[in-house]
Amino acid sequence: MPVQPWLLLGAALFALGVYGVLTRRNAIGVLVAIELMANAVNLNLAVFSRLHGNLHGQAFALFGLALTVAEVAVGLSIVILLHRSHRSVRVGAASELKG
């Protein structure tokens, strides 16, 4: 089976993630969308591993998994901090950076 459909699948999944990041008002919703994007990237790594006939891609996909887990941990702690300080997890709640 050719790899193009797989890669298109990964791109579609990434695009879904982009849509979620841009439209979610809730910070946890944004994190969910980001997970989708990271997942799409990992999928692409696995596909290219298959394409090139070696395991380097899979190894990097493993690293990517670990990175994603770290990102979720930090992201969720930020969300909790945001909730604590602003009584809200809306993405628009924190606007202290306004110039």
């Binding site: 990041v21 841009l22 944004v30 993405v91 628009g92 924190a94 606007s95 202290e96 950076l97 306004k98 110039g99």
Partner: peptide, 13 residues
């Protein structure tokens, strides 16, 4: 130029 910095997270996203 200041207005670019809306402080709104979704604008940055």
């Amino acid at each position: 130029a200041r207005r670019i910095q809306t402080g709104k997270t979704y604008d940055y996203l």
